[in-house]
């Protein structure tokens, strides 16, 4: 049985995560005047069309790429020594402390409540075109899954194979991977909610909305 109170207490003890901002590719770094302690905002707008606070610019091949905050939070440290330098991909630029939102807390609790269908091995995963189209048209919760359903294309070392779903019948409640990204074996791909447990899941959502206090 899911102990929501215990999980909320656990999350309350450490209600944030530290996000390392790294360069997505090579380029020349230009910090934009942020300092440790500054507050930054994540993307906003109905469609998240407004990017988060500008953290730095990375210029490569005359193209300036803005590196924006993906979550709201507080700047903890900045690698100012990199200012104006050509850096490699994956270089750490700064750390942001991000306090968990209600939706993130719900996501973490649901990961323990849903049936997780995990990647059997490290590979790139894609939904088969039919399921991908359904998700794009009606959202992930519009897709019902059942044992044996061909759901994924597994791409590994340039070979592609099909992967069928195993587990209880239900709807996809959460998708935990980005198509085309490497997923380690054992990492969840989707969280499935059996239809008779939808009420329980809704209870979790309601409790978190009522009890979790968001911080800036």
């Amino acid at each position: 049985m899911l102990n929501v109170k215990e999980m909320l207490d656990e999350l309350n003890a450490s209600p944030y995560e530290e996000i390392e901002i790294r360069t997505p590719h090579t380029g020349v770094v230009d910090f934009v005047g942020l300092a440790p302690g500054d507050r930054v905002a994540g993307p906003s707008g109905k469609w998240l069309e407004r990017p988060g606070t500008l953290l730095a610019n990375l210029t490569r091949e005359k193209n300036k790429k803005s590196i924006c905050a993906t979550q709201k939070g507080q700047v903890m440290d900045i690698q100012t020594a990199l200012e104006g330098r050509f850096v490699e991909a994956g270089e750490r630029l700064m750390t942001i402390r991000h306090f968990l939102s209600k939706e993130e807390v719900i996501g973490r609790i649901l990961k323990k409540a849903l049936h997780l269908f995990c990647a059997p091995e490290r590979a790139k995963y894609y939904f088969v075109p039919e399921i991908d189209a359904k998700i794009k048209a009606g959202g992930e919760q519009s897709v019902k899954v059942r044992e044996g359903l061909d759901m994924f294309i597994v791409s590994r070392m340039k070979r592609e194979t099909a992967l069928s779903y195993t587990g209880p019948q239900g709807i996809i409640y959460a998708v935990y991977f980005q198509q085309g990204d490497n997923v380690d074996g054992g990492q969840p791909l989707i969280g499935v909610c059996p239809e008779n447990q939808l009420t329980l899941i809704q209870d979790v959502v309601n409790r978190v909305h009522g009890e979790w206090e968001e911080r800036d």
Partner: peptide, 19 residues
């Protein structure tokens, strides 16, 4: 020697070529 994000990103290659 340069660490890059992908061997398939042309801009990455050319930025390194210039550097």
């Amino acid at each position: 020697l340069f660490r890059i994000s992908s061997y398939q990103d042309p801009s990455e290659m050319l930025a390194v070529a210039d550097a």
